[in-house]
């Protein structure tokens, strides 16, 4: 019996009778991070890092969660589990599973870039490595955090000179906080839309340092925002909330902005900022874990799997939805 099985409910560890990032309601769930495609409501009991537990409570009202710090080992029916930083969003973890000398690591989502919010990714040596590959094509190559910060700062400065507000849009958990902290010395006040503000408050209380920020509810019509950076959710520019911003320049921050065709229309500026590993980082990570058996999931699995096979790995692609065993 393999230590980890791939089922339509998620990664199943039969020996411990629990799932990692289950897609359906199960009895025991180990959660890598708080995004809704990984943490779902309705399971019997949860295991997660303290920060992920707080996020799950805030976003999905999940209460029944046992928390373990990074690198802290806990056992379920003789199987040793531990969380290790994945660098994706605050609290995000890889799950290490070890039983009778066999070690698996399930990454959830991860990035290798070091931002000012998340604990950086740590390589965990293993025999079986389950990796995401959302951006598993060679065209996806990210700029360094410093270059991105410089770009965003420059854009903010230009808008300030033109007396326009700067609306920067990204996913409300993880990306928004990263963007907010990216410019190390803010050149104006920072405002957040209500969703992001609430998330920030929760994270701040949990001990994460942020630049001073304020709530912008969209009702204050006489506020001077001409030198402000406003952090909004991805669809903020099109919402009613943005009506009161006055003259503003909008920008989106996403890894998908890498290709020209994704930059057509929508906001004025497109920054290529991703919370996932790029092509070379994916390969680098696979190499560093020392694993021989690689399971690729989520994204350009066929392409990335094929490339790993070309490099001599025993790589298989995994898809939950089809309830298939790896091939």
């Amino acid at each position: 019996m393999p230590l980890v099985e791939f089922t339509n409910k998620g990664f199943y560890v039969p020996q411990a009778d629990c799932y990692v990032d289950p897609e359906k309601k199960v009895e025991r769930a180990i959660i890598t991070h708080g995004h809704s495609d990984h943490a779902r409501k309705g399971c019997g009991h949860y295991f997660a890092t303290p920060l992920t537990a707080i996020i799950m409570d805030h976003r999905y009202r999940i209460k029944n969660c046992t928390t373990f710090d990074f690198n802290e080992v806990f056992e379920l029916n003789g199987v040793a589990f531990s969380f290790h930083p994945a660098g994706h969003v605050p609290g995000s973890a890889q799950v290490r599973i070890s039983y009778k000398g066999e070690t698996w690591v399930i990454t959830g989502d991860y990035k290798r870039a070091i931002d000012n919010v998340c604990r950086p990714f740590e390589v965990v040596p293993c025999d079986h490595f389950v990796t995401e590959c959302t951006f598993g094509l060679p065209i996806y190559q990210w700029k360094s955090e410093e270059e991105l910060a410089e770009e965003i700062k420059l854009w903010w400065q230009e808008n300030r000179q033109k007396k326009r507000a700067s609306l920067l849009m990204g996913y409300s958990l993880g990306k928004a906080q990263r963007l907010m902290q990216m410019v190390k010395e803010p050149i104006g006040p920072i405002y957040c839309d209500p969703t992001i503000y609430k998330t920030n408050e929760v994270l701040r209380q949990a001990g994460i340092d942020f630049h001073p920020y304020e709530l912008y509810e969209g009702l204050e019509s006489e506020m001077d925002l001409s030198n402000a950076l406003i952090i909004g959710s991805p669809s903020a520019a099109r919402s009613e909330w943005a009506n009161s911003l006055g003259d503003f320049s909008s920008a989106s921050a996403s890894g998908w902005n890498q290709t020209k065709k994704r930059r057509l229309g929508g906001p004025e500026r497109h920054f290529v900022v991703s919370d996932h590993a790029d092509w070379s980082e994916l390969i680098q990570t696979v190499e560093e874990t020392g694993a021989d058996n690689i399971y690729v999931m989520h994204g350009f699995t066929e392409t990335f799997g094929q490339h790993l096979r070309d490099l001599g790995y025993n790589a298989k692609t995994v898809s939950h939805r089809l309830n298939q065993q790896p091939k």
């Binding site: 094509l137 060679p138 065209i139 290709t259 020209k260 065709k261 350009f300 392409t303 094929q306 490339h307």
Partner: peptide
């Protein structure tokens, strides 16, 4: 083959 995928993704 991977390059062809890249062409598809970028157009």
């Amino acid at each position: 083959h991977i390059f062809e995928q890249c062409i598809d993704a970028t157009g």
